Computed example of a mutant assay.
Amino acid sequence: MTRNRLKQRARAGEPILGAWVFSGSPAICEIYALAGYDMVLIDAEHTPIDMAETLACVRAVEAGGGDAMVRVPSHDYGMFKRMLDAGIHSLMVPMIDTVEQAKTIISSCLYPPHGRRGYAASVARSGLYGFDEDYIQTAHEDTFLALQVESDLSSRNAAAIAALPGADCLFIGANDLAGSMGKLGQVSDPEVLASVDRAAASTLAAGKVLGTIPIPGRDASTLAAMGYGIVVGECDIATIKAGALADIAQHKAKFPGRRR
């Protein structure tokens, strides 16, 4: 039985509501976990945070009683090894276009005979620094991989990708998918939605967890009703920005200095 609670819940069909952290702030990660989000997703792809900062965020989520997932910056084999050895068992991998890419990534994240992950379980956080003597036998169950569908090509290959053992979740990135069709920012375009829905149907048909972010006309509750098991809408940067602008707007008559 996997000790990865997030994977257990997602595979059991529980809807997972997540919050996205771009700031790299452990305090915000802990607040989101304490607030009750099912998952805190730490973004190491579009941010400058390094490995140590990423792990600090994961530890903060865990301190708040929550479950963390990290979006990795690339498909680099060594980076997967470092993330996993740091005890980060749930990873989101961007820009998976083909079955071959997916197979390579899955193999990089699993020990033999399931893959080619390098061994350091006896001293790494992943194996509780050697206290979990069974880790190498159970690591493939602990690891939760969310592969991102972020192009129309990926959507067309979604059925074959979702069918792979180890592809636990397909997470649709509608913005980049729209961009691959020459329609960046047009996530409500009928052709874009058709591509999104094709990938979603393929994922559900394979019995895998389906994830995405809200888009206009499809909020988190609507997406859950459509079969999406993981929805990540809340974002720390957007929330801080909105709060700051609201505060300035409320008091600008009394504080008319430098304002946008």
Rank of each mutant, 00 (worst) to 15 (best):
A56L: 06
R156M: 10
R59K: 13
G118W: 03
Y129W: 15
L147Y: 04
K183Q: 06
L145P: 03
E150I: 02
A178S: 11
H89F: 13
S122F: 10
R125N: 11
D50S: 06
F80Y: 15
K81E: 09
A68G: 10
Q148D: 05
S180P: 07
A167D: 01
T104V: 12
D97K: 02
A146R: 01
H75V: 13
G118M: 02
M181E: 06
V123T: 14
M83E: 02
F131T: 14
H140F: 13
M181G: 03
A56F: 04
A120D: 07
H75N: 07
G179P: 02
S151V: 01
A121F: 13
E191I: 05
S107N: 07
P113E: 12
R82I: 10
H89Q: 08
A178H: 00
T54W: 00
Y119A: 11
R116V: 15
I96G: 00
S151H: 01
S188I: 14
G64L: 04
M79E: 15
T104Q: 14
M83D: 01
D97A: 09
Q186N: 12
M92Q: 14
A178T: 01
R117F: 10
Y135W: 13
A178M: 04
V149R: 00
D142K: 08
G127I: 04
K103T: 11
R82N: 09
A120Y: 09
P165H: 10
V70R: 05
M83K: 05
Q101A: 14
E53K: 11
L147K: 01
S126T: 04
H140G: 04
G166H: 03
L55P: 02
D152G: 01
A52N: 09
F171W: 14
A167H: 03
G130P: 10
A124P: 00
P113K: 11
A163D: 15
D168K: 04
I161G: 00
C169T: 06
A52C: 05
G127E: 02
M95H: 14
P112G: 08
Q148L: 11
R71M: 15
I96V: 15
R117H: 12
S90H: 02
I88P: 00
A68V: 05
D85G: 10
H140I: 06
Y119T: 07
D67L: 06
D168P: 06
L110H: 15
G64A: 08
G65M: 08
I136V: 15
P94K: 11
A86D: 07
E150D: 15
L91H: 04
G115S: 14
Y119C: 11
T54L: 04
P73E: 13
L128Q: 13
A139R: 02
A102G: 03
S74P: 05
